[in-house]
């Protein structure tokens, strides 16, 4: 099952920020994402609030409904319960932090309704 998650969430993975700086995934902060998006020109960080977390028909998956950006656009995503999102003021968070830590060694908080996650949109879409 761990192969279903992307490799870059594994603790110790090296992440390159937009200014070229290298950081480990577990050391990333909200500022790193915001500054990188600023530098990128094309990408914009949105605040996406978790509105609902529902079980899925797919085993080990959940359906998360987000309210995205200033227009509060409703977007649903289906992800594995261990899939980590970056929450403002909290850091990496998943629906099943125990499983995330077990599979990725990444320290995780529990993702809950009301949490504000970092997400991306294209500037040109606005």
């Amino acid at each position: 099952p761990s192969s279903a998650l992307p490799p870059y969430f594994m603790k110790g993975s090296i992440i390159q920020l937009a200014d070229g700086e290298l950081k480990r995934v577990e050391d990333l902060r909200a500022e790193d994402f915001l500054q990188s998006a600023d530098l990128s020109g094309e990408l914009k960080i949105d605040s996406s609030t978790v509105e609902r977390i529902d079980s899925s028909r797919t085993p080990d998956a959940v359906i998360i409904q987000f309210s995205v950006g200033e227009h509060k656009t409703q977007v649903c995503v289906e992800v594995l319960v261990e899939y980590p999102f970056f929450v403002f003021g909290q850091g990496w968070s998943s629906c099943c932090p125990h499983r995330t830590t077990q599979l990725l060694a990444l320290s995780c908080a529990r993702l809950s309704v009301g949490d504000v996650c970092i997400s991306l949109t294209l500037k040109s879409l606005r």
């Binding site: 992440i15 390159q16 996406s48 995205v68 227009h71 991306l120 949109t121």
Partner: peptide, 19 residues
């Protein structure tokens, strides 16, 4: 050692118009 771009880690929640 592989190096991954920062934007890989952030979900791309593109607003889609349902109507």
């Amino acid at each position: 050692v592989p190096v991954f771009p920062w934007h890989s880690l952030v979900p791309f929640l593109a607003p889609t118009q349902s109507d």
